[in-house]
Design a protein around this nucleic acid. Structure first.
Lengths: 343, 343
DNA sequence: CTGTTAGCGCATTCAT
DNA sequence: ATGAATGCGCTAACAG
């Protein structure tokens, strides 16, 4: 038996009235007599009538769908942000299409193409570590589709951006390392094409300068977030005649990999070397020793980004705002920088 | 300036031919002269023409979108499954709409409604811990939309299901506890309305029976995956005159919470009490002590489920298969059950 | 091979 | 207040 979806015409026939009247009643239009309205609504309910959102999208030129492009789902950060996004979106009657770039530029371009083809009404983006060209996002601006960056942003586009104070967060972490007496502090830096990579590096440099600690270039290793490179970098550091006694990593996964290497080589944390990360991954409180890190307000990032997007979607293209919202971070001190913990 | 999306008529006008010819050329239809085809394709490329998938969906009655409903994104399991799903889907030219039920039945019903309204071509589902009624999923069957359950399945529906051998996995974990010499083994059971809850409990019972260990009902605590209940249950267990010396938890988050409580009360793991979990969450190798657990083939679950869905989508409703695919688990032994580890 | 027509399901003119 | 007609962008069936 072929399944025939119930449409407006079906209920129009049964009530032997016109499609337009039914449509009006269903859309809450005022100019329809109370009796007809009730009859239509009742029948629609009885038949379990569901509007065809596809048809609606076509005529309204609006899909009630927003897109989200994130680099990965491997760690806990992005899934948690997406949770917050979905919550707000569904509250506003929007669906969410999610895709991951897998930290790959080409995939990201393809993702953007799919979002465009699906006519999302707005797009939330955190760019991949490879992305330096933004043509695939500028298309959205030109087409009048609002765009909001979060966490990993594009500096050259005039759109809303939600970030945290990476520089100050990094500063605090390094300052903490200095205050517990560390002198030779290394930095496992992130990709320098990412603004957060630069900013966290700058926070590191700020702290070193403030406390008059000379910066040893040898102690700064730019990593690309892959395990082999992190391993090599940490090994190189610990192979030095005078290895570092403190380490600030670009993010928690990097810091955790560093902990593994350092421990396996027999160094004691934090006495031989204290380690701090960034972003307070879920796993970070569980590693041994638990990781000192800079926490980001994950929920708030998701909420702010989504709200900013909806704000833009309400506005006309001509009056789009391009405010950058900088959220605060919080230093979480754990055992990887605390030596006076007795078991 | 108003942005006018380029359509088939635009390029038809410029080439002063008919829309249908353009459409044919664009869809790779054979019956169109080589010159025309080239001219059309070239112009389309030059104008950066993109098909309007919405219009296409309307006429084809097919959206090239699949839906995924999962209980949560808080732990690493579901995000990782979704990663695998998205990979396969995008390879087949499908978009993915994801939503979380937050372990809440009402939300799940609403999610299903949205999926229906968006006319997904197929649906992947792992049910919430509250779900006992499946009317909101049976609608899909009736409408001819394929449905595949994974991990947390619905037993009363004749559709493809991807699960792991929960019972045997649980059996192995408990057997391991017995083999390392534990006698009083407790079980923090999962929701018994979930099949995985029942199966893992049965695996526990199987092992106890095989090794002739009398089952003490007091040692079985049914939990609901929330922290307070887990805490209370563990505390109750450890308050017993004769507390358990082994513990098998329904899943890793539950086991990890148990570890926390047990440690905070001064018991030694695994000497006083050995603990094992289920599902090998990402965090489980990092907790202290690292958690013995039953690993599930996450990628394979995602792949199998998605492939099964696509298989169904290819078939006519009349020849839908309802095979249940049972994947193997693997016992991962770590320090929470290994006492002979010297620091 | 190509052009014409109809229709997917809906909202929105324009008439009445 | 209601109905008829138009169109969103596209494909498919029907003619030539």
């Amino acid at each position: 038996m072929k399944h025939h979806q119930i449409t407006i015409v079906d209920i129009a026939k049964q009530l032997n009235t016109s499609k337009s009247t039914v449509s009006r009643a269903l859309t809450g239009h005022p100019k329809v007599s109370p009796e007809k309205r009730k009859a239509i609504l009742d029948l629609a309910h009885k038949l379990d009538y569901q509007k065809n959102l596809i048809a609606l999208s076509l005529v309204k030129r609006k899909t009630n769908t927003i897109g989200v492009i994130v680099p990965e789902f491997s760690n806990s950060f992005f899934p948690h942000v997406v949770m917050a996004v979905q919550k707000i979106a569904s509250q506003n009657g929007y669906s969410v299409i999610i895709s991951q770039s897998d930290e790959c530029y080409e995939t990201e371009v393809e993702n953007a193409r799919v979002m465009l083809a699906n006519h999302v009404d707005g797009l939330l983006v955190s760019i991949s570590k490879q992305t330096t060209d933004f043509e695939h996002f500028k298309v959205f601006e030109r087409k009048g589709i609002p765009l909001v960056f979060f966490n990993r942003i594009c500096n050259e586009m005039q759109v809303p951006k939600i970030i945290v104070d990476d520089r100050h967060g990094a500063f605090q972490a390094v300052e903490h390392l200095i205050k517990i007496g560390k002198k030779r502090i290394a930095h496992l830096a992130g990709p320098q094409c990412l603004l957060i990579g630069q900013n966290r590096m700058n926070g590191y440099l700020d702290a070193m300068k403030k406390y008059d600690i000379p910066v040893d270039e040898e102690l700064i290793k730019v990593c690309d977030l892959t395990v082999p490179v992190i391993k090599d970098s940490v090994n190189a550091l610990m192979d030095m005649k005078q290895p570092p006694d403190g380490l600030f990593a670009f993010n928690d996964p990097t810091a955790i990999e560093a902990i593994r290497v350092v421990k396996s080589r027999g160094f004691k944390i934090p006495d031989d070397i204290a380690i701090a990360g960034f972003s307070n991954e879920y796993v970070s409180s569980f590693v041994e020793p638990s990781l000192t890190t800079v926490a980001q307000p994950i929920d708030e990032i998701g909420r702010c980004a989504t709200n900013a997007l909806f704000e833009q979607m309400k506005r006309d293209v001509s009056e789009w705002k391009a405010v950058t919202n900088v959220l605060n971070t919080e230093l979480i001190i754990r055992n990887s920088t605390l030596s006076d913990i007795k078991p």
